[in-house]
Simulated assay, not measured.
Amino acid sequence: MADEENTYTSFKGYQRVASGDLSSMLLETKEHIETSGEESLLIFEDTTGRQVEFDFRGTADEVLERHGAAKPRVGPGRPKLGVTAREVTLLPRQWDWLEQQPKGISATLRKLVDEARKQEPNRERARRLRDAAGKFMWAMAGNLPDFEEASRALYANDFSSLQAKISDWPTDIREHITRLLDQCAELQEAAGE
């Protein structure tokens, strides 16, 4: 499986509204809000299961720009990267090495992190996806029948039992969990589990 790009899925109740990369999800969700007038949605980052919030005020272009999903400008200047500033503590020799890198400290650190993520073992990536499915289940299906049994099956990696427990759940909820677990099973298979 290639290095995954973050994807997002929005839900209105048990119904999936949009799913895809950030730009696609934002545009489809914005369109849903405008046509339905309904703004109380839950949006999940698929690779973590974390709920995220977006500001849908203004035009579609303004929404994309606000959340760093707009197409980069052509011409001089840097496009917004969506960077988050945080403190990093390193030894003097590490700072010296970073300062000598031709593309600068931040670019070098980003490159090192991206390379490390690509080398991340499939087992760890599979665990993260399983945990993302668990977070999603807690948020969206905690009151559905057989939730506790389904949750136990998830964390026991008993996906066939889990599928049986969620077979009567709303279609979009079930399909979202299944999509995450299919990716998880692919990674587990690649890791030889």
Rank of each mutant, 00 (worst) to 15 (best):
T9P: 14
S106N: 12
E39A: 10
Q188E: 12
R130Y: 03
Q183G: 09
A150K: 07
C184V: 01
G75F: 12
D96M: 05
T59Y: 09
L27E: 00
E189D: 14
A70W: 02
E28H: 09
S19E: 00
L81F: 03
P170A: 11
Q119M: 00
S161H: 09
D131P: 01
A190M: 09
G49T: 09
T48Q: 00
M137A: 11
R152N: 10
I166G: 07
R125V: 05
Q94R: 06
E193Y: 01
E38R: 07
A133F: 07
A191E: 10
E186G: 12
D168C: 12
C184K: 02
N6G: 13
E186T: 12
N157R: 14
A190Y: 10
E39K: 13
R130S: 01
S167Y: 04
Y155N: 04
H67I: 09
Q163D: 03
E193F: 04
A85R: 04
M25Y: 13
K80C: 14
V83K: 13
D96G: 11
I177C: 06
N143P: 07
A18Y: 10
L162Q: 04
T89N: 15
Q163K: 02
T171A: 13
A153Y: 09
Q15T: 15
I166T: 00
L26T: 06
L41A: 09
K165W: 07
S151Q: 14
E149R: 06
V74Y: 14
Q100T: 11
L187I: 02
L91D: 11
T7Y: 15
C184L: 07
M25T: 06
S36R: 03
M25Q: 10
N6S: 11
I105F: 11
M140P: 00
G37N: 08
G142P: 03
G104Y: 07
T9K: 13
T9H: 10
L90N: 01
H67E: 03
V52M: 02
F159K: 00
G77D: 06
S23G: 05
G37M: 01
T108Q: 06
D172T: 05
E175H: 08
F159L: 03
T48L: 01
V17R: 04
P170L: 01
Q94D: 06
G77L: 02
G192I: 08
T89P: 15
G77I: 10
G68N: 03
I166N: 10
